[in-house]
Design a protein around this nucleic acid. Structure first.
Length: 270
DNA sequence: CGCCAGGACGCCC
DNA sequence: GGGCGTCATGGC
């Protein structure tokens, strides 16, 4: 399935359940930008400040200028290539609405993103829209020489530090989050060490982090497929189709099901 | 111009 | 413990 082209240094994959729009532009990551190229689709972006240009063309995914080692160390896990999405879609398709949502975007995958970047990004996401979230995060990176800052980069940051972001009332929340990361109260360790409810409770000790933001961190950075972020769009899905909760066939994978439904309702397909 | 956004918080009962 | 106004900014 992996074809490494040693001449030009590209990794080439067979494109199964993998669409760049559906993975990189569906509200789980905010730092990938689509660029023009000779391919069907091309995006450029980062994982922990490691840059990548990635394309899809017909039934191929192409990771440009990427060594086999880097692919196996970073991108294989980032793009969640160890998970069989076809099998999960097959389960979900028992339900009529979900079946439609999965058929519309069979290329959705849940990324394994950096913990701190996901946490700060989703604090900025609250009561906000996706284009503006991307703008604020872009300015946060500009502030830091083009890289997404670590908590060490922000060791002396306070609310005023974030003024140039024009993040509004969220600046205070960022400051508290960075403070708790620097003190060690919050760290990526909670993603390994704690069960769902305790990890959730811990994240919610950050000012400006509630159940929704914590859920996004646990799903999009910690890969907990059973945790289901409920935003205004999913509330609409529930009112319209699932007044008694998600169907039985999503059990254990409610967070993933949520991502198909989120993308589908935003695109007016359900 | 007004409505809304991948919400959380504080206050009220 | 649920309901409601408020918060800062700008996309559409």
């Amino acid at each position: 399935m992996i074809d490494y082209n040693a001449n030009n240094g590209d990794i080439i994959l067979k494109r199964e359940n993998f669409d760049l729009d559906e993975v990189l532009d569906n509200g789980q990551a905010f730092r990938w930008t689509r660029t023009e190229s000779g391919y069907d689709k091309t995006y450029t972006g980062h994982m922990m400040n490691k840059p990548l240009t990635i394309s899809q063309n017909g039934d191929r995914i192409i990771l440009h200028n990427t060594s086999r080692d880097e692919f196996l160390d970073v991108w294989y896990h980032y793009f969640d290539l160890e998970t069989d999405y076809r099998e999960l879609i097959r389960r979900f398709s028992e339900d009529e609405v979900l079946s439609k949502a999965c058929a519309f975007a069979p290329g959705i995958r849940i990324l394994n993103q950096d913990f701190e970047e996901t946490l700060l990004s989703f604090i900025l996401s609250q009561n906000n829209n996706i284009p503006r979230i991307k703008g604020i995060i872009g300015r946060l990176c500009e502030m830091n020489g083009g890289r997404f800052p670590t908590h060490e980069d922000l060791e002396f940051a306070d609310e005023q530090t974030f003024a140039p972001l024009r993040a509004g009332f969220r600046a205070r929340y960022l400051a508290d989050c960075v403070h708790k990361l620097n003190s060690g109260e919050i760290s990526r360790d909670i993603s390994d060490a704690l069960p769902d409810d305790e990890a959730m409770k811990k994240l919610c000790t950050i000012t400006g982090v509630g159940v929704k933001v914590a859920s996004c961190v646990l799903l999009f950075a910690c890969h907990r497929f059973s945790i289901c972020p409920v935003d205004v769009w999913i509330k609409r899905v529930n009112e319209r189709y699932y007044p008694n909760g998600f169907p039985e066939c999503t059990k254990g994978f409610e967070g993933l099901a949520q991502q198909y439904l989120f993308y589908a309702i935003r695109n007016n397909v359900i």
